[in-house]
C-alpha cells in the first residue's frame, strides 16, 4: 500500500557506497545519467550493466529492493515501448491492417525500456545509500556557486530537508487517518473512479489540517531556538572528500570513457 513507495527511501548500511561523500554520489549520479544516454550500441549497455552491477554489489542493497523501485513505472515502460514498436518507420516484420511492427521500432523500444529501468535503478541507488539529510547537505554544497546570483541556496536546502523530513511523518499520519476512517467503514478500495475520489475527502481534509498545524508548530519551535539561516551558520557534519570518493570517481570516469570509445570505434548497431 502507501508504504510500498520506495523511491527515495534510505536503506541504512555501512558499505563503502554508504560512506562516500554525498556530493560525490550526486556528481557521479549525474555522470552516470550522461553515460547512460550517450550509449550508442549494445556494447555500451554492457558497460552500464557493469557499472550498476559493481555499484549495487558494493552497496550490499538487496536486489529485490531495486526491483521494487522499478515496479511502479512498469506501466510507463510498457506504454512507451508499445508506442515505439508501432510508430517508428522502418522494415515491417508484422502487419495487421494499419498496424505494423518494425524492426527499428522493436530495437528502439528495447533500448528505451532498458534506459528507463537503468535510470531508475541507478538513481535509486543514490537515495538508497544516502540519507535525505546528507543528500540535501550535498545539494546545498553543490549549489553554493548560485549564491553569487542571489539565489537563496541555504533556504532552499532547508526547505528540502524539512519536506523530506516530513514525508515519513505525513505517510504515518495518512496511515493513521486512513485507519481511523476505515474503522468508521470508509471504503477506499472499491467503487468507480468518482466514488474513490470522493472517498479521499475524509482523508485529505484531516491531513491538510494536520500538515498546517505541524508547519506552525515547527516554525514556532525553530524561532524558539533562534534559527537563522544562511550567513555565518556552521554545521555539525562537515562534508569531506576521501579516498573512497577518488576510487569511485576514477571508476565512473573509466566507464564513461569506455562508452565514448565504444561509440567512436565500435560499429553502431541501430
Amino acid at each position: 500500500m502507501i508504504r510500498d513507495i520506495t523511491l527515495g527511501q534510505f536503506f541504512p548500511g555501512q558499505s563503502p557506497v554508504h560512506r562516500m561523500d554525498p556530493r560525490m554520489k550526486v556528481l557521479l549520479t549525474i555522470v552516470y545519467i550522461i553515460l547512460l544516454f550517450s550509449v550508442g550500441n549494445w556494447l555500451g549497455f554492457l558497460v552500464v550493466i557493469l557499472f550498476l552491477a559493481v555499484s549495487i554489489g558494493i552497496s550490499k542493497i538487496p536486489f529485490k529492493l531495486m526491483i521494487k523501485g522499478v515496479k511502479p513505472i512498469i506501466p510507463l515502460i510498457v506504454f512507451t515501448s508499445i508506442l515505439n514498436m508501432f510508430f517508428v518507420a522502418g522494415d515491417p516484420i508484422f502487419k495487421i491492417g494499419f498496424f505494423k511492427i518494425t524492426i527499428e521500432g522493436v530495437v528502439l523500444a528495447a533500448k528505451m525500456a532498458f534506459r528507463i529501468v537503468a535510470l531508475i535503478v541507478g538513481t535509486s541507488l543514490l537515495t538508497y545509500t544516502t540519507s535525505p539529510i546528507a543528500l540535501t547537505d550535498a545539494i546545498e554544497s553543490l549549489l553554493k556557486p548560485l549564491k553569487k546570483v542571489k539565489f537563496p541556496v541555504h533556504e532552499m536546502a532547508m526547505m528540502m530537508s524539512i519536506a523530506l523530513r516530513f514525508i515519513p511523518t505525513l505517510i504515518e499520519e495518512t496511515d493513521k487517518i486512513m485507519s481511523a476512517q476505515k474503522a468508521r467503514g470508509a471504503d477506499l478500495e472499491s467503487g468507480s473512479l468518482m466514488q474513490r475520489a470522493k472517498a479521499l475527502v475524509p482523508i485529505l481534509i484531516p491531513l491538510f489540517i494536520s500538515a498546517f498545524r505541524r508547519a506552525e508548530e515547527l516554525a514556532l519551535a525553530m524561532e524558539c531556538r533562534c534559527y537563522q539561516g544562511g550567513e555565518g551558520r556552521t554545521r555539525m557534519r562537515q562534508l569531506k572528500y576521501g579516498r573512497l570518493d577518488l576510487y569511485a570517481a576514477i571508476f565512473s570516469l573509466l566507464c564513461l570513457v569506455g562508452v565514448i570509445l565504444i561509440n567512436l570505434f565500435a560499429p553502431v548497431i541501430p
Binding site: I177, S179, A180, A183, R184, G185, A186, V201, P206, I209
Partner: peptide, 28 residues
C-alpha cells in the same frame, strides 16, 4: 467487522472532516 467492533484511535479529534458535527458523526 469494523461496524461490529468500533475503534476510537488516539487523538480522534484529528480525524474530523465534515462541515457539521451531525454530518461527521453520521459518517459511520
Amino acid at each position: 467487522v469494523r461496524f461490529l467492533v468500533g475503534m476510537v484511535f488516539q487523538y480522534p479529534e484529528y480525524q474530523l472532516f465534515e462541515e457539521t458535527v451531525f454530518r461527521d458523526i453520521a459518517f459511520g
